[in-house]
Design a protein around this nucleic acid. Structure first.
Lengths: 413, 413
DNA sequence: GCCAATTATTAACCTGTTAAATTTAAGGTG
DNA sequence: CACCTTAAATTTAACAGGTTAATAATTGGC
């Protein structure tokens, strides 16, 4: 377990995590919250300050006597990280500073159609220009978190699925992108990435919870004690393919009654398309890459008070609720988060249904029934989490000194 | 994470685990299998030998040149542990020596009916007499692993379920038993205990697998990297209450279509009782505490070639298969073990059904489809695992010297 | 009897830890 | 104002567990 050089493990990692979550915090609070001793905090923080990763920013204006707590915070500009989420039909890129704040975002429609070579090249170009626009020096980027859907081999950095096309299977995804960008690239699952993001952004600060991610497909992620549950080979929580009571629709996985087949946006849209009147009222197009847009139209119709839209969404939410019950009972959780673009518009409807299902069926929750939340940034949570994954995983040493003149990009210091 | 005194953690624990699993093993193999350095092995083994927990037993007769490997093994008599499994209708007690071998077993029918006070007293009496009969000195017993079904609070050592009766809820179970016996008592779930037992006894030596435990009820356990997955509060893997596609029977948990309600022995027996002809042919009694006995009769009829019995069991196995698929997909496993008295007779039928279901529906298992095994000692696996849990969890130092004369109980040294 | 191969042990060191001083800076008090 | 009290931060020393690199021990083969 010897980790040489700059890879900060154990104490340092927990301190940085907490610093990132809280923004500004004193050493004493760091000790309390991490469970480490004050001595350990001192010894851990000292080199972080020396390396320019952490800075002191005044003192805690608390009334009592005694030496006031000196407040610490991450030096935002010390490092940056890039998060890229590639969906079937689009990509989202975010750039975070070392404190975890978003300094740039880009949305690229229509990414999946071309082959992997073209797609990776396009992504790299966009990362380049996004970093330039944000004025982030390449030498200060810690790495890239690449977030995709479906089974992956994290070690080798390849997808284990033939979607969007067979040429993606076993394509050296992280390798190619890393070489092109000259930066390390970490692969991560969309649901896990969103869950990591939720650890910081999430309203209810908890370190053990489950997450259901719904975009084109449905995925799940579980965080236990602040770490992603990975199972045997990091392809855990395939909640899109749990068989549900009452389900019957055939699924791409070969089974029937899967959550994916019953509840995913595609199914909701297909139902609308099946009824001429509804299809017209919701203006669903049925376009190959427009499932999520169609789904959003239905969701907006619901928000405008359309009863038929409500019925269709409730039918989907019913299945998500059932899946959540299974997730909670198997992993012993007390919080469930809903994330992903599909929850962006109708998140509250899903939340209420899931909460009701858990209320009825979750076991062992004698006290305090499970809580359900919709992710605050349901749309880009996964890309954000991918970048956070890089920030907390990659070894950090002192950031390199920048060359003499940094192109000043206006604004306050 | 400082563990004072005799509590051996990290290296020592891994060495003891491996020693217990392999029986006899050299230092070199110990280093290879644990991933620790040869030096660490030396430093770890030395105090274990000094404390009389590990002994050298000759050398490895390998052909090549060089210094031969010296073989090590646990000193069986150094310590002992007791495992008690309490079911609704009976209890099993086992005594293991330090090497994990069973030195005594007892089966007590009809335990649940009386209140907790009377039950605990009876259990303690039986432990006492079992230890006496086996000639195990009380001072050399490390502790007792108490194994029960359903939700528990491991910290406080109480059950969180009102079964078998409301007076069991919050009854100070481990406290009372520990005081009465003068030994530490650890509470554990039956499925987790059986899974722990399987780690050693199991044919396929793997450290990441799931287990389905079926007695009166259905429970689940997951082991990842040799450790029990516990979740938020150690009540994980409630697989008895996953909702299954096509299920509809109401369940005690308030839901419907639960694995428990569809597949448990009680349901199979109830179906037989519903048909006068079958009930007579299988000689099911429908007695309140005879569910498992009735179930065994049906299983034996299946083994004797009865087609109706086969149909009934296959119906149950169908649900177990579906539950196994959910377990494997959510926890990302490649091995499933079936354990518990319900699999004692018809284990192979269930195994075949579960294997077929996983073949069809398990994801991400591109290579090497998941394997399914029936526990070798399906009946007493849980009690055995409870005792093993004590052996590997309790701090071990040098065993106390026994008083001058130990009552010799005949037999070779 | 010596060499080569292999196993086991020792010594030095590195990281992170705890427990017990020690320092620091307010705030109160004579 | 000088001095004490107190809360908090920090340093120190000892130690725990693990690592590498060098050393010692044991044997088979020539």
């Amino acid at each position: 377990m010897h980790r040489p050089g700059g890879a900060r493990a154990g104490a340092a990692r927990r301190v940085l995590d907490l610093l990132r979550a809280e923004g500004v915090i004193s050493r004493v609070e760091l000790a309390e919250r991490t469970g480490l001793t004050a001595a350990t905090i001192t010894n851990t923080v000292r080199p972080l300050v020396a390396d320019g990763l952490v800075g002191e920013v005044g003192r805690d204006p608390q009334p009592g006597r005694g030496q006031p707590r000196r407040l610490l915070r991450l030096v935002a500009g010390a490092w940056h990280a890039v998060g890229i989420q590639v969906d079937r039909t689009s990509a989202t890129i975010v750039v975070l500073d070392f404190a975890g704040a978003r300094v740039a975002t880009a949305n690229l429609p229509g990414t999946g159609g071309r082959g992997p070579d073209a797609t990776v090249a396009a992504l790299a170009d966009h990362v380049d220009s996004l970093l330039d626009r944000a004025g982030v020096a390449r030498s200060r980027v810690l790495g890239v978190g690449l977030v995709t859907h479906g089974p992956q081999d994290l070690e080798r950095g390849v997808l284990l699925t033939a979607q969007p096309g067979p040429e993606w299977l076993e394509y050296p995804l992280t390798g190619t992108l890393a070489e092109r960008l000259g930066l390390p690239v970490l692969l991560e699952n969309d649901a896990n990435a969103a869950a990591l993001g939720e650890m910081w952004a999430g309203a209810p600060r908890t370190d053990t919870f489950g997450l259901i991610y719904m975009a084109s497909g449905i995925g799940g992620g579980v965080i236990v004690d602040g770490e992603v549950y990975r199972g045997r080979a990091s392809n855990a929580v395939e909640i899109g393919h749990v068989a549900l009571a009452g389900g019957s629709r055939p699924c791409v996985c070969g089974g029937a009654g899967c959550a994916q087949a019953e509840a995913a946006p595609h199914t909701v849209v297909a139902r609308a398309l099946g009824d001429r009147v509804l299809a017209e009222r919701f203006a669903v197009t049925g376009a190959r890459d427009g499932t999520l847009a169609d789904f959003d139209r239905i969701a907006r119709a619901w928000r405008a008070g359309d009863a038929d839209a409500a019925a269709m969404l409730e039918r989907s939410a019913h299945w998500i609720g059932q899946a959540a019950v299974t997730l909670v009972n198997l992993f012993d959780l007390d919080t469930v988060v809903l994330a992903g673009p599909a929850f962006a518009v109708a998140g509250t409807l899903y939340r209420d249904h899931v909460a009701a299902a858990l209320e009825r069926r979750a076991l062992g929750r004698a006290l305090s029934g499970p809580r359900v939340h919709v992710s605050s940034n349901a749309g880009s949570a996964a890309a954000h989490g991918g970048a956070l994954h890089v920030l907390r995983t990659m070894p950090v040493g002192a950031p390199p000194r920048l060359p003499a003149a940094e192109p000043a990009r206006g604004g306050a210091p």
